[in-house]
Computed example of a mutant assay.
Amino acid sequence: MVSRRAVLAAWILGAACPGATAVAAQDYPTKPITLIVPWTAGGSTDITMRAMAEVAAKHLGQPIVIDNRAGGGGTVGPATMAATAKPDGYTLSQIPVTVFRLPLMQKTSWDAQKDFTYIIHLTGYTFGIIAKGDGPFKTFGDMIAFAKANPGKVTYGTPGAGTSLHIGMETIAARQGVKFTHVPFKGNAETNAAVLGGHTMVAADSSGWKPLVQAGQLRLLAVWTADRLKDFPDVPTLRDLGMPYVFDSPFGIAGPKGMDPKIVAKIHDAFKKALDDPGVQATLTKYDMVVNYKNSADYAKAIDENIAAERQIIEQLGLARASN
């Protein structure tokens, strides 16, 4: 009976003191924050997110610990957070567009429109197709010519099924009238190694390949940006090659659903300051990643538009799940 009374008293006190939650939000953060990076360590996402987290942590007054949880084309980390983390601001995740796309392709444990609190939209990737530096493909045309003569024999690595790289390569294949064979990996470090080791003929990935291309170990066949890259002016864009495509796969940060708006605002402001930091901008520039800022409200609104656009692409490629 005493236990029941104690529980009832605690409930009444909480109901009578709605300011308790406000106080918690005001004090946030009081301990380290975990930021899930759903890719392998050492890739462009990992490096740039670490740079942002270091600056944001200074503004928040608590460390931000990076937790690499690769797999599922960048969806394992966000899905785990959505399913298990408390909405208290101490578990966050980078959110790749695969989170919006994969539910259109297969049954998933999360709903992109309901299971996340979108905090801030940050930037996007520079993508490109790489081949081994001393390999047979000297140009994009060489790869396509081989693919036409040898259907299905061009193997390409990406960070996973359903990623923008996977969808992009299948879109290119359809446009060129060829068939590629997809080999999924967990991130940039693995796709680079696969090409260097001859395990795949090419790879499509974000600009973690840049130092290896500059060193001559890898060759950049094409980039997926709107314009040619300053550091690789001789490498054609897909548009240069006659295809009307630009793929940049923008991303941001989210937490579990139901986060306190005041905590969301604190995290947003800290990462916005990080995004404006000269050191962070230098890191983004190093990997040819362009700032693509959206505040919390605009980021959330963009999700519906993103999902609608992804649905159209997935259906055109014949990759949509039956229920869609």
Rank of each mutant, 00 (worst) to 15 (best):
Ala147Met: 09
Leu102Glu: 14
Met81Glu: 13
Phe127Glu: 04
Ala41Leu: 06
Ile95Asp: 12
Asp88Gln: 09
Ile119Glu: 08
Ser109Gln: 14
Asp88Lys: 11
Thr98Phe: 00
Phe127His: 15
Gly135Arg: 04
Val76Gln: 14
Pro87Gln: 07
Thr139Gly: 06
Ala85Glu: 12
Ile66Glu: 10
Gly71Lys: 02
Lys107Ala: 03
Trp39Asn: 15
Asp134Arg: 12
Thr34Ile: 01
Phe137Pro: 01
Gly133Arg: 04
Gly43Glu: 13
Ile66Lys: 14
Leu35Trp: 04
Gly71His: 08
Pro103Val: 02
Ile33Asp: 14
Ala82Cys: 09
Asp111Met: 05
Lys148Thr: 08
Ala131Trp: 07
Ser93Glu: 05
Phe146His: 09
Asn150Tyr: 01
Val55His: 11
Lys58Tyr: 00
Phe127Ile: 01
Asn150Glu: 06
Gly135Cys: 02
Lys132Glu: 07
Leu122Glu: 10
Arg69Asp: 12
Thr108Trp: 00
Asp67Asn: 10
Ser109Ala: 14
Lys86Cys: 11
Met49Ser: 13
Phe116Arg: 07
Asp67Ile: 07
Arg69Trp: 04
Thr48Met: 14
Phe100Thr: 08
Ile33Arg: 11
Ala112Ile: 05
Leu104Trp: 00
Met143Phe: 08
Pro63Lys: 11
Ile33Val: 15
Thr80Met: 15
Ala145Ile: 00
Asp111Ser: 07
Ile36Trp: 00
Met52Phe: 01
Leu60Cys: 12
His121Phe: 08
Phe146Arg: 07
Ala131Cys: 01
Thr91Val: 15
Ala149Asn: 05
Ile130Tyr: 09
Ala83Met: 10
Thr139Ile: 03
Val76Ser: 13
Ala147Trp: 07
Ile129Thr: 11
Thr75Gln: 09
Ala79Gly: 13
Ala51Asp: 12
Arg101Met: 08
Lys86Gly: 13
Asn150Thr: 01
His59Pro: 10
Tyr125Leu: 04
Ala145Ser: 12
Leu92Phe: 03
Gln106Pro: 04
Ser109Asn: 06
Ala57Thr: 05
Ala82Trp: 05
Gln94Pro: 10
Pro87Met: 05
Pro63Thr: 13
Thr75Ala: 14
Val154Ser: 04
Asn68Pro: 09
Gly73Glu: 10
Val97Cys: 12
Trp39Gly: 15
Phe140Arg: 03
Thr34Leu: 01
Thr45Met: 09
His121Glu: 06
Ile33Phe: 05
Met52Ala: 15
Ala53Phe: 00
Ile130Gln: 01
Ile119Gly: 06
Asp46Pro: 09
Asp67Thr: 09
Lys107Asn: 11
Phe100Val: 01
Ile120Phe: 09
Ile36Glu: 10
Glu54Met: 00
Pro96Cys: 05
Ile120Gln: 05
Phe146Cys: 01
Ser109Leu: 14
Pro103Met: 03
Phe116Thr: 11
